[in-house]
Amino acid sequence: MPTERELAATIDHAILKPELTRADVDAELDIAAEWGVFSVCVRPSDIAYAVSRLAGTGVAVGTVIGFPHGTTSTAAKVAETRQALADGAAEVDMVVNIGALRSGFDDVVADDIRAVVEAASGHIVKVILETALLDDEQIERGSRLTEQGGADFVKTSTGFAGGGATIPHVSLMRATVGEGVQVKASGGVRSYADALAMLEAGATRLGTSGSAVILGEARRVDAGEESTGAVDSGSY
């Protein structure tokens, strides 16, 4: 069972809701710094600000590309990626071209991923499949195309498509890709129990806005207290 610190090192704290004000963003960045998560995943327009505010905390800043629908052109995704890196992002989470994947246009999907990977110039790239919109065959194929495109992670969900990570989908993705590709479970990871289950299924990174709930419970477990199984129903 991971310690609080070990669990924090798996978390990308999501700060992506479109309605968030600057004060809301500040509060979330402070949570990320307080709990020592691996990174925050912020809206593209918040990258430079987040980098500045988190300077010296050890929390990395990531962002999203083609978010949340994945339907922007490859050229637009490439431009977004380059701008994100210029603004200080350390990692990017791109949304796959979902319609192309569902249509069986594998070359289109792989080329889209590969172009973002090349634009990222060695920075970590995670590919969001949006598993709630896919069947198992499409999830397997999307995972293979993620690997073929040279990305570092295959990721379940944006959290904005009416469904999130599930244990069967995380397990399927882990079984499909080789050891060189990691799995990120995102969307609906709201409790300590959720986090442990996703890690057990094969995820190595977790996307959540429920970091304080998850890590607060991990701290109680570290202290020898019984897990409450509490869930923050408002978490992404």
Rank of each mutant, 00 (worst) to 15 (best):
M1F: 05
P2W: 10
E4V: 01
R22I: 00
R22C: 00
A23F: 03
V25S: 04
A27G: 04
L29D: 13
I31C: 11
I31G: 00
A32N: 13
A33Q: 13
E34Y: 04
V37Q: 01
V40D: 09
V40I: 06
P44Y: 08
D46H: 12
I47P: 10
I47S: 00
A48Y: 07
A55W: 07
A60T: 04
A60E: 14
V61M: 12
G62C: 06
G62K: 09
I65R: 11
G66I: 02
H69V: 10
T72Y: 01
A75E: 15
A76Q: 07
V78F: 11
R82Q: 15
A84M: 01
L85Q: 08
A89L: 12
D93N: 14
D93K: 03
V95A: 07
N97L: 00
N97R: 14
I98N: 07
L101I: 02
D107R: 15
I113N: 09
R114S: 14
G122K: 12
I124E: 13
I128R: 10
E130K: 08
E130D: 11
L134C: 05
D135E: 13
E137L: 04
E137K: 04
E140W: 01
R141C: 01
L145C: 01
L145F: 05
G149D: 12
A151Q: 00
T156Y: 08
G159P: 14
G159E: 05
G159Y: 11
G159H: 10
G162R: 07
A165Q: 04
V170K: 08
S171G: 06
R174T: 02
G178R: 05
G178K: 12
G180P: 08
V183A: 05
V183H: 09
G188N: 05
V189C: 02
R190Y: 00
A193S: 05
L196A: 02
L196P: 02
M198V: 04
E200M: 04
G202C: 10
A203F: 06
T204V: 13
R205N: 01
L206A: 02
L206C: 02
S211G: 15
A218I: 02
A218Y: 09
R219L: 09
R220A: 14
A223H: 13
A223F: 06
E225I: 01
G229C: 12
A230P: 00
V231L: 08
V231N: 07
D232L: 11
S233Q: 04
